[in-house]
Simulated assay, not measured.
Amino acid sequence: MRNPSYINLYALTDEKILSLICEFIRKSRIDQQYSQQELSERAGISRSTLSLIERGTSPTLETLIKILRALDRLETLSELRYEKVVSPLKVAEEDIQERYRVRKKKGTDDPLKSDW
């Protein structure tokens, strides 16, 4: 399979992306020298399900996770981890708005001040 960093995934149809996923599963299985029967047993799915997926049938997310786990390739899902992206402009704005001192609000009395 081609290096994914050179594939413009946004230019591909959903069907083509599904085809790439199925191809990834099939080629990973072959590279690790598993038969369909062996991998399906490791993943806890039927051989016919694996065969259908390798031919382009859309797997459920749960089945995809089982297959990737059986292939020791769960790291391929690491890009799905959400990380908040902070804009450099937002950081700069917050730095500008940083407070350096606190002033007493108008109209508030000092609670420590005594009437005696």
Rank of each mutant, 00 (worst) to 15 (best):
S58G: 00
S58V: 10
S58W: 01
P59C: 10
P59E: 03
T60Y: 03
T60Q: 08
L61K: 01
L61A: 11
E62G: 06
T63M: 02
L64N: 05
I65E: 02
K66E: 11
K66C: 15
I67K: 02
I67V: 15
R69P: 00
R69H: 11
R69L: 12
R69F: 05
A70S: 14
L71W: 07
D72S: 11
D72P: 07
R73L: 15
L74D: 03
E75Q: 12
T76L: 14
T76H: 08
L77H: 02
L77G: 02
L77K: 03
S78D: 14
S78I: 07
E79W: 02
E79S: 11
E79A: 10
L80H: 00
L80R: 05
L80C: 03
L80E: 02
R81Q: 13
R81W: 01
Y82V: 08
Y82G: 00
E83G: 09
E83I: 15
V85G: 02
V86S: 07
V86Y: 14
V86W: 10
V86C: 02
S87E: 12
S87G: 01
S87L: 14
P88K: 07
P88M: 01
L89H: 04
L89C: 00
K90G: 03
K90M: 05
V91Q: 08
A92R: 11
E94R: 11
E94F: 12
E94K: 13
E94W: 11
D95G: 08
D95M: 10
D95R: 03
I96T: 10
Q97F: 06
Q97I: 10
Q97H: 08
Q97A: 15
Y100G: 11
Y100D: 09
Y100S: 10
R101P: 00
R101Q: 12
V102T: 14
V102G: 09
R103H: 13
K104T: 04
K105A: 09
G107N: 11
T108I: 09
T108R: 01
T108C: 00
T108A: 00
D109C: 06
D109Y: 06
P111F: 15
